[in-house]
């Protein structure tokens, strides 16, 4: 059943994280992270809360700053250089746990804002793209409402569409379903699965193990700021190597 997502991966490396460390003040959050992501790869990152998984993917678009090591995204190294950071952010989309839609703008305005102001796309073209992606996430009829009028699941789908409107090369998902009611998780995961099937490079922090089994090329397990284990989903779930991974899996799959 998990064989379906075993496939040939491209050799082109789009994200390279090299001996990366991060501290919050005195606290060492991320320890010696090494990660290479190839184009089109879908990675699911899991681990107990506080393990640093969100912090790690937030480093990839510099929402968090790393203090040591290297992060290279699409050939651009993330440093203090604002130009580089903006370049990376243009190519990397991100969805948040709490959606973070702009409440003072309509859904359509949420979607067209960044293309118009960052990519300088003309308004009519930006609106056409926006409607295209709203149809993809199955809520074109909500275009003129405000985020506050939508359900959580709808808001998260809008947030995904908003990122896609920038035509990103890579998508980061930071616990996209953790704030949703069970009824709404499925509709968001559906959209993400479709996106994965179309070949988007995805890094996804999530506790949805069903999604990981179905979609991921690789599952990464983190604990205490370190990458403990990474493997294909089949191997990862059926034959976990590390003790800590086994304990984690037994806790979340055990009931």
């Amino acid at each position: 059943m998990t064989e379906s997502n075993q496939r040939e991966l491209s050799d082109e490396i789009v994200i390279r994280i090299n001996q990366m460390h991060k501290w919050y003040g005195e606290f060492h959050v991320l320890k010696d992270i090494n990660l290479e992501v190839t184009k089109g790869e879908r990675i699911v990152i899991c681990g107990p809360s506080g393990s640093g998984k969100s912090t790690m993917i937030r480093c990839i678009n510099r929402l968090e700053e790393h203090q040591q090591g290297q992060i290279i995204v699409n050939g651009t190294e993330l440093t203090n250089d604002v130009k580089n950071i903006e370049e990376v952010r243009r190519e990397v989309g991100m969805c948040f746990q709490h959606f973070n839609l702009f409440p003072h703008l309509t859904i359509l305005e949420n979607l067209t804002l960044a293309p118009m102001w960052v990519r300088k796309v003309p308004k009519s073209e930006a609106e056409a793209t926006a409607m295209h992606y709203l149809e993809r996430v199955k809520i074109p009829d909500q275009a003129n409402k405000y985020p506050g009028q939508l359900s959580g699941g709808q808001q998260q789908r809008v947030a995904i569409a908003r990122s896609l409107c920038m035509k990103p090369e890579i998508m980061l998902f930071d616990e996209p379903t953790s704030a949703l009611d069970p009824e709404m998780i499925a509709e968001v995961l559906d959209v993400m699965t479709t996106l994965a099937e179309e070949g988007m490079t995805m890094l996804c922090v999530t506790h949805e193990m069903g999604f990981a089994k179905k979609v991921a090329d690789r599952v990464i397990f983190m604990d205490a700021g370190q990458v403990i284990e990474q493997n294909t989903p089949t191997e990862f779930f059926e034959n976990p190597q590390n003790e800590r991974t086994q304990l984690f899996l037994s806790q979340i799959l055990g009931h």
Binding site: F96, H98, N100, F102, L113, A114, W117, V118
Partner: peptide
């Protein structure tokens, strides 16, 4: 203004002046 608004604006590639004028200050 919740921190998420600043982050969402940054993640979309808006620079400081644009995110202030378009996202943060109106709210």
């Amino acid at each position: 203004i919740p921190k998420g608004q600043y982050e969402a604006a940054a993640a979309l590639g808006l620079n400081y002046p644009k995110s202030m004028i378009l996202i943060i200050l109106p709210q």
